[in-house]
């Protein structure tokens, strides 16, 4: 079975919020919209978002590191928010594992948000129904788009390619490879929700340069070994070979 998911590389994310704005732009006017704002240009700006970039500081000063942490629905393989829904509005798609809300069935009781440890569901203050990341379901399943554009808006927008999208059940997919080879992990594994989205850990980025890489092997003139013999005021004839 297919399980579509995001893999987010925390080592690459620079916290620019491009995924947040592109998500809002695509989804507020699409199938999942509107995502209503209140006082967007005023004090106390408020609104519905499917994706938020948060910032954490790890360590103690001065040995601190900033971790930018994009957070959206993790599309759990065993989503705790689905069985608690009294109307069946909250469901997980059989064909691709995306967790969705049927906005015509939702009664806005908020019980699903209580049953999500990640806090990724938001009740829209105007629509009065629960909203959440759809993985841009209206985009990734749109056959009229070229293959390269059938990706969530956040993935396409990310300027550093920190977000990967694909089927985590396909062992040869880009996302499975990244999870396997770069230490992909799940959030709050203690709850057994088995999130499909994975995060790639923060790592120290080091480049190892060996001495011989600085020396040109094929270097007949030994340019770098030549002593500087040119004195100030020398003419071109003085330095000619």
């Amino acid at each position: 079975m297919t399980q579509l998911a995001l893999v987010i590389d925390l080592n690459v994310c620079v916290g620019c919020h491009a995924c947040v704005t592109s998500c809002k732009e695509w989804n507020t006017s699409g199938w999942a919209g509107p995502m209503v704002d209140h006082n967007p240009y005023d004090a106390d700006p408020n609104g519905t978002f499917f994706n938020r970039v948060q910032t954490f500081e790890v360590g103690e000063y001065p040995a601190t590191e900033t971790v930018h942490f994009p957070k959206s629905c993790l599309h759990c393989e065993d989503p705790p928010c689905v069985p608690v829904c009294p109307t069946g509005a909250s469901y997980k798609r059989e064909d691709n594992g995306v967790v969705l809300v049927d906005y015509d069935k939702c009664i806005g009781c908020k019980y699903c948000s209580w049953s999500c440890p990640y806090g990724v569901r938001e009740l829209d203050e105007q629509e009065k129904v629960m909203k959440k990341c759809t993985l841009c379901i209206d985009r990734i399943t749109d056959k009229s788009k070229p293959e390269s554009e059938r990706k969530p808006a956040c993935v396409l927008a990310c300027p550093t390619s920190a977000r990967l999208f694909g089927d985590v059940h396909d062992p040869d997919s880009e996302v499975s490879l990244a999870i396997r080879e770069e230490g992909g992990y799940q959030l709050m594994p203690e709850w057994g929700t088995n999130p499909a989205n994975h995060y790639l850990p923060r790592r120290k980025t080091r480049i190892k340069i060996h001495e011989d890489e600085l020396q040109r092997v094929d270097n007949p003139l030994h340019e770098e070994e030549r002593e500087e013999t040119v004195s100030v005021g020398a003419s071109i004839d003085d330095v000619a070979f």
């Binding site: 919020h17 700006p45 408020n46 609104g47 978002f49 938020r52 954490f56 900033t66 938001e122 203050e125």
Partner: peptide
Amino acid sequence: VQKSQGSMGGNF
């Protein structure tokens, strides 16, 4: 330590 939560005026 959390430094920002992705919204300035609170949220749901």
